[in-house]
């Protein structure tokens, strides 16, 4: 009985979280225009409960990586992600953030997933606002299904904790 109660509570929490995403736009390139279009009234990201860009990572739970990440920016992006409060989610916005795009050269990170864990990749150069909203809905589905990276990591930690015999409370899966 108690177990099923906890499960339903998780569902309710996920439902609340997926409809109140506070975004942190890490905008580095031209994809920012499409981000602005998505956020503005015509496409209106507010319909999905993600209308509030917080320009402080500490007040955000969704990191939008919008645009090309250079090798020099990569430590900055990693630090931004580390500063965000959990549970946190990451969307790679556009091909540059997803794979490096056509910048296959000495200065571009081939996808921001080399530096931070990514939940949803939105292709396009740049993606249309419809695609972005599609990606956002996909993320909401993942949050509800508890399949985002942070949720999977937490489950993994709980499993390891259940197996552990030395009484350690949390086991870091990723250093």
């Amino acid at each position: 009985m108690a177990e099923s109660y906890t499960t339903r509570l998780d569902d309710a929490l996920s439902w609340a979280r997926k409809y109140s995403l506070f975004t942190y736009p890490f905008v580095t390139a031209c994809c920012g225009m499409e981000y602005m279009a998505t956020a503005a009234s015509k496409y209106d990201i507010a319909r999905f409960g993600a209308e509030f860009p917080r320009f402080s990572p500490r007040q955000a739970d969704l990191l939008f990586v919008v645009g090309t990440i250079t090798e020099r920016q990569a430590p900055v992006l990693h630090r931004i992600w580390m500063q965000m409060a959990e549970p946190k989610y990451v969307i790679a916005f556009g091909v540059c953030a997803s794979t490096g795009g056509f910048y296959q050269n000495y200065n571009t990170v081939p996808g921001c997933d080399q530096v931070i864990p990514v939940d949803v990749y939105i292709p396009g150069c740049p993606p249309r606002p419809e695609q972005v909203l599609d990606g956002l809905i996909l993320l909401q589905k993942k949050i509800q299904d508890a399949t985002t990276w942070v949720q999977r990591r937490d489950r993994k930690e709980l499993e390891l904790q259940a197996q552990s015999t030395d009484g350690r409370k949390r086991l870091p899966v990723v250093a």
């Binding site: 090798e71 296959q104 050269n105 000495y106 200065n107 990170v109 999977r152 993994k156």
Partner: peptide
């Protein structure tokens, strides 16, 4: 003579679970 795709990363992380 610099190899065009030779990256010199400052940071890389592996998040595979």
């Amino acid at each position: 003579d610099y190899p065009k795709e030779q990256r010199q990363p400052l940071i890389r992380r592996d998040y595979s679970l």
